[in-house]
Deep mutational scan, measured.
Amino acid sequence: QTVQFNGLEYHFPNPEEAEKFAKKVAKELGGEVRVKDGRWQID
């Protein structure tokens, strides 16, 4: 599972970890999490 933001990609072994990370980062950055092409993106 991949999380993308600021032009970087973070890879996680399972979707739960990816989701948790994506939501944490979005909260800290005040961004929005969305899934695109099977990847988590933070904008």
Rank of each mutant, 00 (worst) to 15 (best):
V35E: 08
V25M: 14
Y10D: 02
D43W: 15
I42H: 04
K24E: 12
T2G: 02
V25C: 15
A22D: 02
R39N: 11
R39D: 06
K20L: 10
D37V: 00
P13K: 11
N14L: 05
G30N: 09
V35N: 09
E9W: 08
K24R: 10
R39G: 08
A18P: 00
F21Y: 07
P15H: 10
A22G: 01
L8F: 13
H11N: 08
E32H: 13
K23F: 07
N6T: 01
G38N: 09
K24H: 12
E16S: 11
L8P: 01
G30Q: 07
G30L: 05
G7T: 02
E16N: 07
W40V: 05
E9Q: 08
W40D: 04
H11F: 13
T2K: 07
E28M: 14
K24V: 06
A22N: 00
I42K: 03
K36E: 11
Q41L: 14
K20T: 07
E17H: 03
I42N: 04
G38Y: 00
K23S: 09
F21A: 04
L29Y: 12
E17C: 14
D43M: 14
N6Y: 06
Q4D: 09
E9A: 06
A26W: 03
E32T: 15
G30R: 06
A26H: 03
K27L: 12
G7Q: 04
V25T: 06
F5T: 02
K36N: 09
L29T: 13
Q41G: 05
Y10H: 05
Q41D: 09
E17Y: 04
F12E: 01
V3A: 01
V3I: 05
A22Q: 02
N6L: 11
D43L: 15
E32D: 09
F12L: 01
V3L: 03
F5K: 01
H11W: 14
W40H: 05
Q4V: 15
I42T: 04
F21Q: 02
Q41C: 15
R34E: 06
E32G: 06
K20V: 07
Q4R: 12
G31K: 10
K27M: 12
G7M: 03
F5N: 01
G38S: 05
E16L: 09
I42C: 11
R39S: 09
L29W: 11
L8K: 13
Q1L: 12
A26R: 02
E9R: 05
V3G: 01
E9N: 07
H11R: 06
V35T: 06
K24Q: 13
K23A: 08
D43K: 08
L29I: 14
T2C: 15
L29G: 06
V3Y: 00
Q41W: 15
E28N: 08
K24P: 00
K23M: 09
V35Q: 09
F21G: 03
G31P: 01
N14V: 03
Q1T: 14
K23Y: 09
R39F: 13
Q1M: 13
N14F: 05
P13F: 08
T2A: 06
D37P: 00
G31E: 06
A26Y: 02
G38M: 02
E32L: 12
Y10E: 01
E32P: 04
K24I: 09
D37S: 03
L8R: 13
A26K: 03
G31F: 13
V25Q: 04
E32W: 06
R34K: 12
A22K: 03
E28G: 07
E28R: 13
I42M: 03
E17I: 05
T2W: 13
L8N: 10
N6I: 04
Q4T: 13
I42Y: 03
L29R: 06
E9T: 12
K24C: 15
K20F: 08
R39A: 10
